[in-house]
């Protein structure tokens, strides 16, 4: 989603909120119409499809109020992680979400690790090269958040293979002897 230029931050946030509201309204409207037009047979697969939009890894809580369900999904938190962005929910989350996902994916934040100084260098680089705006008094909040939750993990010259991540499977081999 691209925000028009020349808006202050509050207007940007409002613009983005409005854009998402419109999107949600479209989805809800379309679903309602499809429900009446195509009836159950066609509706059911679409329902699954739309639900998948917000499903992630865990089951979606079934509720009769769809509008509320989507608002909850937008802000849904599981095990302290904001589902949509993958960010840790802690002080600074709102500032990071608002400033760090406008130009790039939240994945570019969550896959990285750095000290406070390292994160500051990245911000300076983005401001010099990539058009990031002045973060003002939000900068220390953002740096505190990033250096707390995305700090370097101590490891040696080489990690063990991450055994917990290995998916074990039986390899089907013909050549037994």
């Amino acid at each position: 989603m691209k925000t028009p230029e020349g808006l202050n931050d509050k207007q940007k946030d409002q613009y983005q909120e409005a854009w998402l509201d419109t999107l949600r309204t479209f989805i809800f409207g379309a679903k309602t119409i499809l429900f009446f037009v195509f009836a159950a047979l066609l509706y059911i697969p679409l329902e699954d499809d739309i639900k998948n939009l917000f499903k992630e890894k865990q089951e979606v809580k079934v509720t009769t109020n769809r509008s509320t369900e989507k608002d909850e999904d937008y802000d849904r938190v599981e095990n302290g992680i904001h589902v949509q962005t993958g960010f840790v929910v802690a002080p600074g989350f709102d500032e990071v979400r608002a400033n760090c996902t406008v130009c790039h994916s939240s994945k570019l934040v969550t896959q990285n690790r750095a000290t406070r100084e390292g994160w500051e260098q990245m911000i300076i680089w983005m401001q010099e090269k990539q058009g990031l705006w002045d973060l003002g008094d939000r900068k220390p909040i953002i740096l505190d958040y990033l250096s707390t939750h995305y700090a370097p993990i101590k490891k040696g010259r080489r990690d063990n293979i991450d055994i917990a991540e290995v998916e074990w499977y039986i390899l089907d081999l013909e050549n037994t002897d």
Partner: peptide, 26 residues
Amino acid sequence: LALGTSIVFANNLPAGLVPVALEDHP
């Protein structure tokens, strides 16, 4: 198809840019 509706100005979205609402859609 994924949204169940059309996105206004979808043609103006640069390639590789997916609306936030769709980011995690399969």
